[in-house]
Design a protein around this nucleic acid. Structure first.
Lengths: 339, 339
DNA sequence: CTGTTAGCGCGTTCAG
DNA sequence: CTGAACGCGCTAACAG
């Protein structure tokens, strides 16, 4: 352990521990002269307060936790970027936990988190979670919580989301306007808030265009990439009339591409694809792809802002503080557009 | 704060705090009967030990820190994935810090970290860091440190890297064999270990092929994407003879694509591109791109393994524990290959 | 097998 | 303005 602590400083300066502590906190009841002496020695010895002792005493950890399904996904990594930025500016530390879309892991993680390790939490729930008692228990244990992207309606707190219904509608409409009449929809999980909203947008757009909703064109791709690709391939094979695909997440966009290529269906001539993707890259390299891009970085920032404000002011977070940001259709300009 | 602590449990059970503590740690010197009583109540009241009190007392935080330039990059996000996996299995928590390639931030972060907040650190140094006294100071303050990918030779510890020299050689050779005679090289930063190694591989391959090294074909792209793209565009414009590009990082691959497109140079007919990329996606969507893929997930796992082993055994990490993993050339099979 | 005691390092009384 | 004393919640040494 780093043996340079308040005691050590106090001894070397012939001061009491209390005075040194106060001096370092710039308390008004310490002479500026001793403050200077203390600071000088602290800097010289590279004193850094023991975070755990401080946390224990003040019952504040200056730490927030981020619970997300995965980090290897541009949406979440951009969000983390925003979160870390805000946290750093306010002197907060960021603990990260990955659920891998697994309910069991989410439960285990929330259990840890009840030990007062964090002052607040930013959560995007796993697709495998259909039951939320673990989150309710966690919430009862007191930390401030803000959900982002994938929310949990069962808990009364703020959510930061995007206009998923609208995006689903626009994406589908985009394909229909491009001439598609048989549009498949690939979603991660039907029990995810975002999945339901996007799906509803999809259905509404079909209805408004006078196209009948066909349940067999909806696929849940919550497995690994290979399995998903196989599922999509099967579907495309049995339904040669499919001429458009609306993929709800980035991974399913890729799988769709692979499935089409495996079957020799040209993109975008035979099948047009549109999908959620925060991967500027994919859209740049794939001229035939139109993407819906979420403001992931901003989502992270806003969610962290709400959380930290509440923590600092010791206020309860209200559902009314929720925010809905806007996603954008992004289409590469330079070469052959999708439609 | 969560008021269910050992004291509370002890009171309700008419036991001493120490006994309760021991029971929960499954100490052999507690009757299985009382263990059961304790566990039952703990479960009922949802007791979770206060992590900070425990850390303070035992001087062990069960927390590691990860210091990386950015997370919005498939290499680092995959690495985090591996790190989190290993950490979770061993009951460790993961704090994350982003330097954004900025020296000042790296210094500030290392300063925090001296407060005993973490038992160990995994670091990939920022490209802006040319001076390492902050890391040396940190190292002196005691936590176990393992560097990965971007190492700091000034510190005697284990590094987990990939065969960068060889990769640089192979990548360059790949372009030469495909008929390129004027191969440009784009690197992030000359003061980064990986940058130097890859560059050396590049130079060796040129030499072995009897091609003279041309300094003006080497570009440092350590700025933002727009600036980098502009730099590359300028270079390509002034050097119309360039027929191959070896990009040292993913972002520079994208910038190269954009630069070529802006100038109307066909890929791969006019210019062939090869680059480091851990973005399965890009390679899948861009048939004309060959990538060098690093085993990012494994790097994260291995680095975390070395670190946690050392922490658990309270052993010093030796440079001899360093690991060099292998990157792979990845080329899309289905359609027109690069060469 | 269980209880008593003594700190970990820090921040906050309460005295002077 | 400064010091002495206490306790955050937990673990560990020492008794019994």
């Amino acid at each position: 352990m780093n043996s340079v602590n308040l005691k050590r400083l106090a001894q070397e300066l012939n001061l009491s521990i209390a005075t040194v502590s106060r001096a370092l906190q710039d308390s008004y009841e310490v002479s500026s002269q001793t403050k200077e002496r203390v600071r000088a020695l602290a800097a010289e010895l590279n004193y850094e307060p023991n975070a755990y002792a401080s946390s224990l005493r003040r019952n504040i950890s200056k730490t927030i936790g981020v619970v997300i399904p995965e980090v290897n996904n541009h949406f979440f990594s951009l969000a983390i970027n925003g979160i870390e930025e805000v946290a750093r500016q306010s002197g907060y530390h960021v603990l990260i936990y990955l659920t891998h879309e697994d309910y069991e892991r989410e439960v285990a993680i929330t259990q840890y988190l009840m030990g007062g390790r964090v002052d607040g939490l930013l959560i995007s729930v796993a697709s495998g979670s259909q039951e939320f008692s673990h989150l309710e228990k966690l919430y009862a244990s007191k930390p401030a919580i803000v959900f982002f992207d994938r929310v949990c309606d069962a808990i009364q707190t703020a959510n930061v989301t995007t206009n998923d219904y609208e995006s689903g509608y626009l994406a589908t409409q985009h394909l229909i306007e491009a001439g598609c009449t048989r549009v498949a929809h690939l979603l991660v999980s039907g029990n995810l808030s975002i999945g339901r909203m996007r799906m509803q947008g999809y259905q509404a757009a079909l209805q408004d265009a006078g196209i009948e909703f066909d349940e067999t064109l909806v696929l849940e791709g919550d497995a690994d990439d290979e399995t998903n690709t196989a599922l999509i391939t099967d579907m495309l094979r049995s339904r040669p009339d499919v001429d458009g695909i609306f993929a709800s997440v980035e991974r399913l966009v890729i799988s769709s591409y692979q499935a089409c290529q495996a079957l020799g269906r040209a993109i975008p001539q035979d099948v047009k694809i549109i999908g959620f993707s925060n991967l500027g890259v994919a859209s740049l390299l794939a001229p035939s792809l139109t993407t819906i891009t979420q403001p992931a970085y901003e989502i992270g920032k806003e969610a962290a802002n709400i959380l930290l404000k509440a923590i600092e002011k010791k206020k309860v977070i209200l559902p009314s503080q929720s925010l809905v940001l806007k996603s954008e259709l992004f289409q590469r300009k330079s070469t052959e557009p999708c439609r």
